[in-house]
Amino acid sequence: MATDNLLIEIKDLHTYFYLAEGVVRAVDGVDLRIKRGQTMGIVGESGCGKSVTALSLMQLVPPPGRIESGEILFYRAVRGNNASTMTEVVKITDLKPNSKEMRSIRGNQISMVFQEPMTAMSPVRTIGAQIMEVIMLHQEVDRAEARRRAIDMLARVNLPNPAQAIDRYPFELSGGMRQRALIAMALSCHPSLLIADEPTTALDVTTEAQILELMRTLQNDLGMAIMYITHNMGVIAEMADEVAVMYLGRVVEQTDVQSLFFNPLHPYTRALLKSIPQLSDATAKKRRRLEVIKGMVPDPYSILKGCTFHPRCEEMIPGVCDQVLPMLIEVEPNHSVRCHLYGTP
């Protein structure tokens, strides 16, 4: 993979939560690369560390969690002297969460859209005030100009009557409209990476389709990369260029979206794909039971020896999988997998 168009590089990231009951290794060795303008889909079950990876990227891991080790590199585009763009490497893991430099990245070059549009804005301030706040924080513009830009952004996300909507309070908008306003807020400083943490989970299917369509259009217009976090394989198929499948704090498979759906390698990925209900199952004469992945996600405090998926794996090799942790190896060009079936470490 060429490094010239790299935007984000996560190397062996560990983010742990220190709770009274023990240490939760929410992110336990994640490697990830996101290219400029690309959509990276992160998929996995609840509690697999998708959101914590995203929060680590923003240095927003809430206490008692903290980034334990690993590197997050941000290849920031800076304008050179002669209108050429150069990249400068910012090591996000070296920045303090509350430092001025980290804050100047947050909401500006890397911004985030969250899961719950209903509670993502303060109910006592107008959406305009909350959007203008970001613009005025990161760009040297006055109120009038910030307002003009906010209205422009609201128009881009297809909010009806943006000039009036800007003075509305969040509770006056529907869920879908609020998520549009939140996307407008996240994009108001033209970030190079937008992290979308299950932005459509709380919305109905029609609205979800509209929001996904909107995000793709905006990505084309603004040329940003998207890190799209979801547990929905359908959304991944629709949105992502590259996909990383996560299980228990690790990336178990990373490839392009085509290979993932047509040539899944990791037993977990295959099991995930098999557990999607098919419409043809419902109409077929002989109904088939929905396949599920056997067992449960192990409790977060335990440390499993070997591959963390081995207790639930159909193809577990005794003596190997329960003993040695497999490495993430590139078995085909741009197709990495963390599994003993594809070579021993």
Partner: peptide, 25 residues
């Protein structure tokens, strides 16, 4: 509430976040 995290994600300082968001409510 989530809006506190959203406010942090904007790049506001912790003090600004607390005064402008949760304290107002």
């Amino acid at each position: 509430k989530q809006y506190v995290m959203v406010a942090r994600a904007k790049g506001l300082s912790e003090l600004q976040v607390i005064i402008r968001y949760p304290m107002r409510l």
